[in-house]
């Protein structure tokens, strides 16, 4: 049931610049685009965006407090997936977990907790080893340290676990639902649902709890916060626990959704999530969420209706446009220059 007809450009002709051009439209004709297809692409985009948002939070938390791009954060995503793989593999041995629906739910919960805690602690450890000695160093020094750490972690997994792409189990009962021609499956529901719930929890945590308030205080003015008696090391440790833990969950989601994991799987989502954090206004938690979902949706729509080869160009072009017109991101507060 074609409810609407939209003209769309040539689908990735390699002979010429494949964005919309009149000749190409004549050559390839029109493509019928139904509401259902748009809706389906939105589902794809929101699922992807949920994962981006979870990762982006890690970038934005650290950036808000330390003003550094934690390049190693993409490896938290990857590490989370591998810890998740091992946790699932371990729990799978017990009849109790695989036997019933309740057991499976418990298995998921335990895997999330194990992976979140392990990677969260890894994040704290990395901060202690690689970033804390550099807290008063020139601004780009921690960036390089983070890149080194990222290379190290990738290589560690490559050498000590596997260089191959390995299958990731999916214990979620298969099932998909169709609403008005848009199908959505259990994993997508779980990813979208859990990411939104986690984002709400984090938002409440930051705005309501004592340590959350301390985090916001530190990100606004580190010195003033210190003067007010905020233990800055504790705040940093908490940020370096929460960010990687959320990244780890995104890694597990990614493993379940795409069915396999690999040591270099973090790189592209890492770059994208960082982009998402910047679109939303880096340092701003809600901005990271908005940016993540937005980027996921943009990518899905661009791949679906323009060209899969150019989807990243569309994403980055929108990023540049956002920044040109709103230099501190969508939800970022414009910083008043201190003179």
């Amino acid at each position: 049931m074609p409810l609407t007809r939209v003209l769309v450009g040539a689908r990735g002709s390699t002979k010429a610049f494949p964005l919309i051009s009149l000749e190409q439209l004549e050559e390839t004709g029109e493509t019928q685009v139904s509401i259902a297809t748009i809706g389906q692409q939105l589902v794809n985009g929101v699922t992807l965006g949920g994962m981006y948002a979870l990762i982006a939070l890690g970038y934005t938390l650290v950036y808000g407090i330390l003003l550094m791009i934690n390049f190693a954060h993409s490896e938290m995503f990857m590490g989370g997936a591998f810890v998740g793989l091992f946790a699932f593999g371990w729990l799978d041995n017990y009849e109790f977990f695989t036997g019933s629906g309740f057991g499976i739910a418990l298995m998921f919960l335990m895997t999330f907790v194990i992976s979140g805690v392990v990677i969260g602690l890894l994040g704290v450890l990395i901060e202690r080893v690689a970033y804390r000695p550099l807290r008063h160093a020139p601004r780009l020094a921690p960036l390089i340290s983070a890149i080194g750490m990222s290379i190290f972690l990738q290589q560690a997994v490559l050498l000590w676990i596997t260089p191959r792409q390995v299958p990731f189990p999916n214990y979620l009962p298969a099932g998909s639902y169709e609403i008005a021609g848009i199908s959505i499956n259990n994993i997508q529901i779980m990813i979208i649902g859990s990411s939104i719930i986690l984002l709400i929890i984090l938002d409440t945590f930051v705005s309501k709890t004592r340590i959350g308030k301390a985090m916001r205080a530190v990100s606004q003015d580190r010195e003033a916060a210190t003067l007010m008696g905020v233990d800055i090391n504790r705040v940093i440790a908490v940020a370096f626990f929460i960010g990687p833990a959320l990244g780890a969950l995104a890694g597990i989601f990614s493993g379940m959704y795409y069915g396999s994991i690999k040591f270099d799987m973090g790189f592209i989502p890492g770059v994208k999530a960082f982009t998402a954090a910047v679109i939303g206004g880096i340092g701003n938690l809600r901005g990271a969420m908005v940016g993540g979902f937005l980027l996921g949706i943009i990518e899905a729509l661009a791949a679906g209706f323009l060209s899969s080869g150019y989807k990243d160009v569309v994403a980055f072009a929108i990023l540049i446009l956002v920044l040109v017109f709103k230099p501190s991101g969508l939800l970022g507060e414009s910083v008043v220059e201190k003179v």
Partner: peptide, 23 residues
């Protein structure tokens, strides 16, 4: 029916899959 490029490092092809499905 159509030609698309992806990357050998991509993981998400869901949007492309939907597009192909529609075609």
């Amino acid at each position: 029916a159509g030609r698309e490029k992806t990357s050998d490092k991509d993981t998400d092809f869901t949007a492309l899959a939907t597009k192909i499905n529609a075609a």
